[in-house]
């Protein structure tokens, strides 16, 4: 027990779980009691999705030390595949919960497969190739989704690429309609589902980071030559980290997609990738609780700033800069160190 409390990373991990659980309980109670505004209620699920996105990107950027500039592409794969699956299974599986889980699993698997396709050639290389390739990947996914038409009728699913579908039977309907994306989405994501996904994501990431493989991944980040000299297979471990990250982003995408009435491909563009990267950088590389707080705060912030009408994005930018200044302020770091003596002690023990 003493070891558990003095081990800095274990302590921090358990505090992260505890924080998420407490936030969930408080928000659920407030929601039930009517203490949440419509704006906040509407944001609960998207915030969960962005938190999972930030966590998954933190695995790539913070833990692996590789840069991914197309993480929204994986989100897009998850969002659209999940929404199509959920839509197609509407009659077969009436339960929203089960359908959401199936959609998420499909979304995660497909995003993971795309991650493998990208990772196999790129992660063999040294240098910033992953950043370049993921940047292009995000744009490619956007183009593909914009030109994809999927319809459903009594005979099953129909696919068409580039040209709109023709000859759908009466009683059928279009699910995905090219540039219109999925205009008739049914919301089935819930805050509870989002919470569970965050907890699962945290478990996967913490267990991976604290495992033998995780140490290998971090060793590769810190010094690739030294790590390879002790026999660590660089490509294998990097693939492990990257594909996990892609699959989690896919699940986050499904969660997000199923919380929206209408989704279009251009929603998941370069800006969204950078937004998630901002969450990770502001929250701290490799610091999972930082990503959670940054993602939640920075998603809600623009809505809180609506009072300032046109100036809100200006103020948003100022807040970003201030957060950067404050989190790197040595004086404040000391202050927090004094406020939380155990953490400081733990740090000294190391």
């Amino acid at each position: 027990m003493k070891k558990f409390l003095t081990n800095k990373s274990t302590f921090s991990n358990y505090m992260t779980y505890a924080g998420v659980v407490i936030a969930f309980i408080i928000l659920t109670i407030m929601g039930e009691a009517g203490g949440l505004s419509s704006t906040m209620k509407g944001q609960l699920v998207p915030v969960c999705a962005y938190v999972v996105m930030a966590l998954s990107l933190n695995l790539t950027v913070g833990v692996m030390g590789e840069l991914s500039l197309g993480h929204a592409g994986f989100m897009s794969v998850g969002a659209f595949s999940g929404a199509v699956v959920a839509s197609a299974l509407q009659q077969a599986i009436p339960s929203d919960g089960i359908r959401l889980v199936i959609a998420m699993v499909v979304g995660a698997i497909l995003a993971g497969l795309v991650g493998i396709v990208i990772g196999v050639p790129v992660l063999r290389l040294r240098g910033d190739y992953l950043a370049i390739v993921t940047l292009a990947f995000g744009e490619i996914i956007k183009s593909i989704v914009t030109n994809l038409y999927i319809g459903i009728d009594a005979k099953g699913l129909h696919f068409s690429f580039l040209n709109p579908l023709e000859g759908l039977e009466a009683g059928g309907r279009m699910i995905m309609n090219g540039p219109m994306g999925i205009p008739g989405n049914t919301k089935i994501s819930t805050f509870t589902a989002g919470f569970i996904l965050i907890i699962i994501t945290l478990m996967i990431i913490f267990n991976l980071v604290n495992s033998r493989s995780g140490r290998a991944i971090m060793a590769l980040r810190d010094n690739r030559i030294a790590a390879e000299s002790v026999g660590i297979n660089a490509t294998k471990y990097k693939m492990m980290g990257f594909v996990t990250s892609a699959a989690l982003a896919g699940a986050a995408g499904t969660l997000f997609g199923m919380s929206q009435n209408a989704i279009i491909a251009s929603k998941f563009d370069f800006n969204t990738s950078i937004l998630v990267l901002v969450f990770v950088v502001l929250g701290g590389l490799g610091r999972m609780w930082g990503s959670i707080i940054a993602a939640a705060a920075l998603t809600i912030l623009p809505e809180l700033l609506r009072e300032f009408s046109e100036y809100r994005m200006l103020i948003y930018a100022i807040v970003l800069i201030l957060v950067m200044l404050i989190t790197n302020n040595p004086g404040l770091k000391n202050l927090f160190g004094k406020l939380i003596p155990r953490r400081k002690g733990a740090a000294e023990n190391e």
């Binding site: 505004s37 419509s38 704006t39 209620k41 509407g42 944001q43 998207p46 219109m180 994306g181 205009p183 929206q260 009435n261 209408a262 989704i263 279009i264 929603k267 623009p302 809505e303 609506r306």
Partner: peptide, 30 residues
Amino acid sequence: AEKAVNAYNTLKDWDMQIFMGSVTSTPGTA
């Protein structure tokens, strides 16, 4: 579309009684 729904919710919190919609189509769909 996502921001439009947020904006709509903000208007709902303001006790909007008539909604003159979204100006553009994709946000309008949502």
